[in-house]
Amino acid sequence: MSRDHLGERLSALVDGELGPDEHETALIHLAKCESCRFEADMLRRLKRRLHGLCEPEPDHDFMGRLAGLSRDPGVGGGPFGGPPGPPPGSFGSSAPLGSSRPLGGFPGEVPAVDPAPDAGGRTSAPGRSSRRRTDRFPHLFPGFPGGRYAVAGIAVATALLGSAFVAGGSTEEAPVVEPRLADFALEHAVTSRHFTVAGTGADEVGGADEAGPAPAER
């Protein structure tokens, strides 16, 4: 028994799907076989981590785009229930969750970060897909903090420019006024004592209220 490793039964053992006799036999083998014991330990850890993951709630934007995909006739019949073999890059074309390499790697393998999915044959829009997944599972993609900062910076700059553009708009609430150049010229003359009332040329500019009513108060 010690020579024949548990193989497929190891997974059934971890999942508690073996019968009583097979379960007893597998435990005896594990007591003797260090390799199977290590693998069983890794499988248990993986199972605990997967149980620890929360089910993410799809946001409204995601659901909206999902509905748009389902209405788009150019995308192979929709994300669910469509004909087999959806176009590469469309929703559902990637490998199912859990089919990729286990977290932490296989026994003896140095754990490495691989931001790109290595299964499913994705060939189109990898950046967009990985960015969404990065946002949703930031602990799974810890290798690009600078990218997030850049996106945040661009967002802040855009918001600032937009706010300034809105704030810099013309003050529509301000009333329309028409400078009374004739009155202003007279006021200028009587305060300056240059007495050039007749020569101010205020009428040359135009737009002035030459015969406007007298000021309300003086």
Binding site: S170, A174, V177, H188
Partner: peptide, 11 residues
């Protein structure tokens, strides 16, 4: 003398 006339509003 420079006279500056200021009024709130827009043309």
């Amino acid at each position: 003398q420079v006279s500056v006339f200021i009024q709130r509003g827009r043309l």
